[in-house]
Simulated assay, not measured.
Amino acid sequence: MALIYQVLCAVLLLSGVIVLVVAAFGVLLLPDMLSKQHAATMATTLAVMLLALGAGLWMHDWGWSVRLLMIVTFMLCTMPIASHVLARAAVAGRGLIHDREHPDVVHYRCFIRKNNDSDAEADKAKG
């Protein structure tokens, strides 16, 4: 039984490390700010939960489990807010967006409309 318990802890800890490494590559390789912040916040939250669960199972002390539960709760409360703030800053600051049809062309776009026109009127004005 102890061997299964140790293997479960090792799998959780290793899974958390793998998710963090994939998130780091996502931040480095993804093309635009919105994709990078998504990789950074979503994967980091999952990785911290996996690492905390693995560490909580590894330590046989309730004090550690309570601390790790507080860390996970803090991450679950703050990471969505941080992600939202980063996305708003990227959109408001005309974040760097890659064109999917022409990946080598980089330009700036802003998704915030200055007025409350409908999509049909905006498309008509463009054309």
Rank of each mutant, 00 (worst) to 15 (best):
W64F: 14
M1H: 10
A122C: 07
E101V: 04
R109F: 03
L76K: 02
W64R: 02
H107C: 12
V66A: 14
T44Q: 14
A55C: 08
S35A: 13
T44P: 07
V17Y: 01
F111L: 10
G26H: 02
F25D: 10
K114H: 07
I18G: 14
C77Y: 11
L28W: 09
S15A: 15
P103L: 06
G127V: 02
P103A: 07
Q6F: 08
A39K: 02
G56F: 00
L14G: 09
L57N: 08
A23S: 15
G54K: 00
M70D: 06
V17H: 01
A23K: 03
L69M: 13
I4C: 04
R88Q: 06
D61P: 02
G56H: 03
C77V: 11
I97D: 11
A90S: 10
H38C: 10
L13M: 14
A55H: 00
K126F: 10
L68S: 04
W58G: 00
T45C: 14
V21H: 01
M70Q: 14
M1C: 08
V48K: 03
R113P: 01
C9S: 13
V22E: 03
T41Y: 15
H38P: 04
A82L: 15
T73Q: 13
V85D: 09
L76V: 01
R109M: 10
L51M: 08
H60F: 06
F111M: 09
G16L: 05
V21K: 00
V91S: 02
G127F: 04
A39Q: 01
K36P: 01
H102P: 11
V106E: 15
S118K: 08
L12N: 03
L34C: 06
V72S: 09
N115T: 13
S65E: 08
A52H: 00
E101S: 12
V85A: 15
A89R: 05
I18D: 07
L57Y: 05
D117V: 13
